[in-house]
Design a protein around this nucleic acid. Structure first.
Lengths: 236, 236
DNA sequence: CGTTTCGTTGAAGAATATCAAAATGCGTGG
DNA sequence: CCACGCATTTTGATATTCTTCAACGAAACG
């Protein structure tokens, strides 16, 4: 099974790996034990590396790149339930609850992922109470956030969800780029639609409405936010 | 603050408390420390004992009864995100992620709840790695389950969700009553609608359709399931 | 320069919410 | 037992939102 994970064989001890932060509480011995098992691999965009309903053999952490998590709502209907970036963990929930993978994961861009085999991860958690505490905090927070997201998707209009997405993208860009005033986001309609949980067409119409109200300006793929307070008003 | 929790003052050391199971790994000393702080209280039906956006000062565990968890999707729109019964914990996610309560909780029936102050709980988790592991497993599983629920709510038709609810109620009744063949469930339309995430009227129509297809029979408040395979077919 | 992908727009149809009203059930007091 | 009143459930009509199918222009790319 390990074969799938170490094509460009290289264990992930780089201290620049953002996922490493959560493991920083391990003793040198524990860290070494984990590091020995920890294998980084480069993935192209669009690769599916976690298949739902498959035994959860490993935890993945995102070193660089972005991945999307999907669930099948009914047969043939893939639904995005989240997007994860550098430093985030995938498959933790399944490993900790001894369930097969409940989601599928696919890279959105060329990415580097580290895989830690199930048992090694569990050993580390058992041996290091501090790691357990950190995971508890992280999973709890993720859970609450996801719940909020999904409730919004089930009970808010597409317009409201679209407005929220724009604001979230703005915020995300601000945080990641460090710029103080971000006024533009750029994302394909297809992808936005997936995140909002609707179709290209409906999403396009929502954006059209925003533009009509002067909240945004659509020019050549970019979306320039003119008045974010209008968006906040539409967000519920 | 503790005042709210010990009206009929009585600490919860009863070994019959189903929530106690998860604490069974604590050493006598740890258990005593927690037990001293653990206060049981009787609530009538319909009492709100966790108010969203309020500091998460305590973990509650359900000793007996049922409670519903709600979130406000938009202003004035309360949405049920889950129902918890005996042995289950409330507020863990918030305490562990150091956030205010993100949900509100209300008793559906007369219930007995135990409250453990935030700090006592955190101390117990820190002192007992096994407890941490159990919580990790439990939260992970809850998370996965809730995700599935909410994705269904966002992307399945009311008919499908209603069918699922009926099947779930059947299953639940089977498990809790221990009866081998359950064919009837009984629940107000309002409450069913809340669980499904729709209105009374639409829910009623769904049931009407089921009845028309001969899958169920509606008589005087009870719902008798005639053909659960039909429901399973409708469930996606 | 044609082809392909992406974005927008239109029109029709399905699903659901909403408002309104009728029917049903249920307990209470006569 | 019956009649009344209240609450719940069902049904009907309409409006809204969203999806779907279809067409079209525009940018992207060979």
């Amino acid at each position: 099974m390990t074969n799938r994970f170490h094509c460009p064989r290289q264990d992930c001890r780089s201290d620049r790996c953002p996922a490493k932060k959560i493991y920083s509480c391990l003793s040198p011995g524990q860290d070494a034990a984990l590091g020995r098992e920890r294998l980084a691999r480069r993935y192209q965009a669009g690769q599916v590396f976690i298949h739902h309903d498959t035994p959860a053999l490993a935890i993945f952490s995102v070193h660089s790149g972005q991945v999307k998590l999907t669930r099948s709502a009914s047969i043939g209907q893939e639904v995005v339930v989240g997007v994860r970036g550098p430093g985030e963990l995938l498959g933790v929930r399944e490993v900790l609850s001894a369930l097969p993978y409940q989601v599928s994961a696919e890279t959105l861009e060329p990415s580097i992922l580290c895989a830690v085999p199930r048992e090694a991860f569990l050993d580390a958690v058992r041996d290091c109470p501090e790691l357990a505490m950190r995971l508890l905090g992280r999973i709890s927070k993720d859970y609450l956030l996801a719940e909020e997201q999904l409730v919004a998707r089930a009970h808010l209009s597409v317009r409201a969800r679209t407005a929220r997405l724009l604001l979230a993208l703005l915020e995300y860009k601000r945080v990641t780029t460090g710029a103080r005033a971000v006024r533009e986001v750029s994302m394909g309609r297809e992808e936005m639609a997936l995140l909002v949980g609707t179709t290209r067409e409906t999403l396009s119409r929502s954006l059209g409405q925003f533009a009509a109200r002067g909240a945004v300006e659509l020019k050549s793929g970019k979306i320039r936010i003119l008045d974010s307070s209008v968006l906040e008003g539409l967000a519920d």
